[in-house]
Design a protein around this nucleic acid. Structure first.
Lengths: 183, 183
DNA sequence: CGGAAAAGTCAACAAGTGTTGGCATATGCT
DNA sequence: AGCATATGCCAACACTTGTTGACTTTTCCG
């Protein structure tokens, strides 16, 4: 099956959607603006994705792509995680779109919850960590908080820090959330 | 000067606005819905607050009301802060409204930035902490992340934790952000 | 070529938004 | 009481939104 002509427009729509959802959030990102970015007619968006909700669902498909942490020393796990999140976050508009939308859109919030429950928690379980769900939640508070301050709110002091600095300061936090006994 | 009749409706509007902005975010919270909650006409909202932006500005006026931390032992500062934030957060819709709105509304984001730069950072400076701005930013990542996960996304494992548990686990994090040397 | 299917365009709709001005009512002062 | 002012309600505006259907153009295959 040869590559259909529509595949290119589909992809263009998806890319524009991710950018707009990421920059503006779910409600302020309009179908018309997305279509304009992709240089096509708004009706095309509807034809290919049905409605706005489904378009967002397609645009917010995200995989944390957690690396294999088996070989990482126990006390460096947090630092490795922070570094992974930072690069993953900056190389892809999707997560920003998901986070921005999750704050006001319930289905986006549900997807965000799943990200940590269905992707991070199982990974922790493989590391033979006890109470993986709770620890995944704790890690979410710090990593999503970092993302919020750095990429959404753009808090000056936080955007100024380098990856190395963030890894050095926040890494031990995650390590502790992973390994410290929970009262 | 006796209490004007309008003061009551002004207050009702403000309370409804905080609730709606907190529950729905800036764009999805409509003037009509706020007016309906306050059992008045939408035109009243305009008369008293000018426009939606100004209404939000009035509704999102917030003071962290940071307590005097002078007498708190150095290694318990974080725990005290976490406890303070939790109660402050839960006793007032304002911060939730501000956080929800800050994600998609620039002026709300600016106000959020000011909250940490103009209220938290100076308090840290009084504690004779070095680099108060950076440390305030670090604290923002953890506390806003907690608020996001607990009150906005409602991540199961995070909502299930008690104040005591959160203070025990997250407290040391903030203490470290306050006291650890920064590379 | 010729025609069917795919891809794209255009105009319009129904609903909801912030916002405005005019008009009625209530309040309070002299 | 009577009047000015504060307070409230109603209807409408101009605009934007997601979404739809009919129409035209392009593509592709027998």
């Amino acid at each position: 099956m040869a590559e259909r002509k529509s595949d290119r427009t589909r992809a263009a729509i998806l890319a524009a959607a991710r950018e707009r959802f990421g920059a503006d959030g779910y409600e302020r990102a309009t179908i018309r603006a997305i279509a304009a970015d992709a240089a096509i007619d708004p009706a095309m968006v509807m034809r290919y994705y049905g409605n706005k909700e489904k378009l967002f669902a397609a645009a917010a498909e995200f995989d944390l792509r957690l690396p294999d942490l088996g070989g990482v020393p126990r006390d460096e796990l947090g630092e490795a995680l922070i570094r992974h999140f930072l690069t993953r976050w900056e190389g892809d508009d999707t997560l920003r779109a998901l986070l921005r939308a999750a704050v006001t859109n319930e289905s986006a919030a549900e997807r965000m919850r799943e990200l940590f429950a269905a992707q991070l928690a199982p990974t922790l379980r493989e590391l033979k960590v006890d109470q993986p769900a709770v620890r995944a939640g704790l890690i979410a508070t710090q990593t999503l908080g970092l993302a919020l301050c750095r990429y959404i709110l753009e808090l000056g002091p936080v955007t100024a820090l380098t990856h190395d600095q963030l890894a050095a300061v926040l890494g031990p936090t995650l390590t502790r959330y992973l390994t410290a006994p929970l009262g």
